[in-house]
C-alpha cells in the first residue's frame, strides 16, 4: 500500500502545491526584508488570480493574463506602500484593509463582469512544457519515469518559482541590491546616512512583493484551475507568510518551507483515497504549516529573528 501512496505524482503535486506559496512567501521575504510587514499577501494573490482570468479572457491569451495578474498584484501593493510608507499608517492595519478590499473587489467585480457570484467562466490554461508520456522499463526506465513525472510535468510558473527562489537567494546575499534591501530592514537610518533612498527602496520592495503575489495568484487561476472562484486563495497568503518565517526570511528558505507545506497538502489529498485504512483526519495535515510556524517562533528550533526595523515607519530625522 505504501507504494500506492508514495508515487511520483505525490512529489509532483507537492511541487505544484508549493508554487503559489513559494512565490508569495518570497514576495513576503523581499517586502519584510525592507522593513515593511506584509500580511496582505493573501489579498494580493486573490486580486492577481482574478485579474489573470479577466485579462486572459479579454486578450484571449493566457500569458497576457499572467501579465495582468502581476500588474494587479503590484497595484494592490502600491496601495499598501502608499499607506504604510508615505502616510505612515500601521502596516498590519493597512495589510488587513488590503485583504478585505481584495475580497470585496474581486467579489464585486465578479458579479459586474460575469453577472453572477461564485466561479468565472473557464479560460485557456497555461499548459506544461512537455507532454510525452514515458513508459518505464528496466531500472533506468524507472528512474526516467520518476524524474520525468516529478520534475518535467509542470506548467511554466512552477519553473519560474524555482528560478526566482534561486536568483532571489543569490541576489539577497551577493548583490548590492540585496545588501541595500537588508540594510533598509535592519537599520534604515544607517542606510539613509550612506545615501540609500529609504522611501524608494521600500516602495520598490513592496511593489515587487505584490507582483510576486500576483504571479502566485496567476499560478492558481491560470495554471492549476483555469478559472477564478471567490476567495480561491483560501488562506494560502497566510501559509506563505508562515513559510517566509519558517524559511527565516530568505528566498531559498521560503521555497524550502513551501515545499514542506506543499508536501503536507499533497499527502493529505492523497490519503483521502485511503480513508478506510488510514484514519488520520485531513485537517491535521492542513494544520501542520501553522503549528510548525508557531513552533519555530517559539524558539524550539533555534531563534527566528525578524528584520530589526520591521513594522516601523521611517522618519527622516
Amino acid at each position: 500500500m505504501l507504494s500506492d501512496i508514495i508515487t511520483p505524482d505525490l512529489f509532483a503535486s507537492a511541487i505544484r502545491m508549493a508554487t503559489p506559496l513559494a512565490l508569495a512567501a518570497i514576495g513576503g521575504t523581499i517586502c519584510e526584508r525592507s522593513g515593511v510587514v506584509n500580511i496582505a499577501l493573501e489579498g494580493m494573490m486573490l486580486v492577481g488570480a482574478f485579474a489573470g482570468v479577466v485579462a486572459s479572457m479579454f486578450f484571449g491569451n493566457a500569458w497576457l493574463g499572467v501579465l495582468g495578474a502581476v500588474l494587479a498584484g503590484a497595484l494592490m501593493a502600491l496601495i499598501h506602500a502608499f499607506a504604510s510608507i508615505t502616510l505612515r499608517a500601521d502596516q498590519v492595519v493597512s495589510g488587513t484593509a488590503i485583504n478585505i478590499l481584495a475580497l470585496g473587489l474581486t467579489g464585486f467585480l465578479m458579479e459586474v463582469v460575469y453577472g453572477h457570484p461564485g466561479t468565472t467562466d473557464s479560460v485557456d490554461r497555461l499548459m506544461p512544457f512537455f507532454s510525452a508520456s514515458p513508459s518505464g522499463g528496466g531500472f533506468f526506465g524507472e528512474i526516467w519515469l520518476w524524474t520525468y513525472s516529478i520534475f518535467l510535468t509542470h506548467t511554466p510558473i512552477v519553473y519560474m518559482a524555482i528560478l526566482i527562489a534561486v536568483v532571489g537567494q543569490w541576489a539577497l546575499y551577493k548583490t548590492t541590491w540585496g545588501l541595500r534591501l537588508r540594510a533598509l530592514g535592519e537599520h534604515p537610518r544607517a542606510a539613509d546616512t550612506v545615501g540609500i533612498n529609504v522611501t524608494r527602496g521600500r516602495y520598490s520592495a513592496v511593489i515587487m512583493s505584490g507582483a510576486l503575489g500576483g504571479l502566485a495568484g496567476a499560478n492558481l487561476s491560470l495554471e492549476q484551475v483555469g478559472s477564478f472562484t471567490e476567495n480561491m486563495t483560501n488562506g494560502r497568503g497566510f501559509i506563505a507568510l508562515a513559510a517566509n518565517i519558517f524559511g527565516r526570511w530568505t528566498p531559498g528558505g521560503s521555497y524550502g518551507a513551501s515545499l514542506l507545506f506543499g508536501f503536507a497538502d499533497a499527502l493529505q489529498i492523497k490519503l483521502q483515497l485511503f480513508r478506510d485504512v488510514i484514519t488520520i483526519p485531513s485537517q491535521f495535515f492542513l494544520m501542520l504549516p501553522y503549528v510548525l510556524t508557531v513552533v519555530v517562533l517559539a524558539g524550539v528550533m533555534g531563534r527566528a529573528v525578524a528584520p530589526a526595523a520591521i513594522g516601523k515607519p521611517y522618519e527622516k530625522g
Binding site: 496601495i79 499607506a83 502616510l87 478585505i100
Partner: peptide, 21 residues
C-alpha cells in the same frame, strides 16, 4: 453586488488608519 460592503469596510479601515489623509 452585496460584496460592496467589504469594499466600504476596507476603505474605512484605510481612512481611519491613515488619519493624515
Amino acid at each position: 453586488p452585496s460584496k460592496l460592503i467589504f469594499i466600504i469596510q476596507a476603505l474605512i479601515i484605510f481612512l481611519v488608519a491613515a488619519e493624515q489623509l
